[in-house]
Amino acid sequence: MGPLLSDITVNGEVIPAATIAAEAQMHAAPKGKPGIAWRAAGRALAVRALLLQEARARGLTPQPASDGERAETEEEALIRQLLDEAVQPSAPAEEDVRATYDADPGRWRAPTLYEAAHILFPVHAGDADALAVERAKAEAALAELKRNPRDFDRLARELSACSSRDAGGRLGQIATGDTVPEFEAVLDTLAEGEIADEPVATRFGLHIIRLDARAEGAILPYDTAAQRIRAMLAKAAWARAARDLIEELADRAEVTGIDLKAA
């Protein structure tokens, strides 16, 4: 465990081991292999430091945005503004959109409908102490549910911080895109009636998730699917361009304690 407990430096800026350890709790890893979560956390924090350093080097002034429920921090705003300025990929070509559809029409369906329930243990980003407390509560509740799954309704009413607790954690019918990606990704792995094996971390906190029912949508015709495919290809192009920016920043940076080339 020795190497996992060292600080990381990015162009002389120190990211303490304690900060990395706190961040690691938000990254999944197989039991008994904490190094995977630690390295993922270290890379994420090092990349964040690189982006903030570049934003400040360009003289950007933070202009936090808000979605009505949550406002960006100044650091989040700086990173967004940097990416808006530096990452501008080309729009996908129409022939690429058509080829993507033709390669697997079954991939393009109307939204999947889910009936699901959850128990939410709230955690604010960066609050390592609260995360440890809430994770312990979530794991204790999950252990109880593994012994008696029928207790989900009762535990949701007693423990959940979501308003759905009044319905025993039931979210009603939700569709693809209605929840955050981490939540939906778990729903797609569960069989009907199954409870996820581990608490699921999202920006809202930790969730115990149960899938009650799933109805997969019908295959969409090309003209209907094309807009979704364009959006997907544009997102992939943006991600490649963002990765190229990060690789460029990493290549000219002095980084110790983590190998960003392995990210």
Rank of each mutant, 00 (worst) to 15 (best):
A125W: 15
V87W: 04
G12I: 01
L145R: 08
Q88T: 15
K261R: 13
E85C: 04
E72D: 12
A213I: 09
V14Y: 00
A18Q: 15
A263V: 04
G12F: 05
R107I: 11
L120H: 03
G193F: 06
L51V: 03
T224K: 10
E69A: 09
D102Y: 05
I79L: 05
P34R: 12
R39W: 12
N148G: 15
A21K: 07
P89G: 10
V87C: 03
A29S: 15
A28I: 05
E72N: 09
A201R: 02
E54V: 10
A242M: 07
P181Y: 03
L211W: 03
H118N: 02
I36P: 03
S160F: 05
L113C: 00
A175Y: 01
T176G: 12
K137H: 04
R80N: 11
P62W: 08
G42N: 10
V123M: 02
A130F: 00
G35R: 10
K33R: 14
L159Q: 14
L211H: 00
A93R: 14
R39C: 07
R243P: 03
R98F: 05
E248P: 01
D67Q: 12
R80C: 06
C162V: 06
G106Y: 04
A215W: 07
G68S: 13
A93D: 10
A125E: 14
R252Y: 10
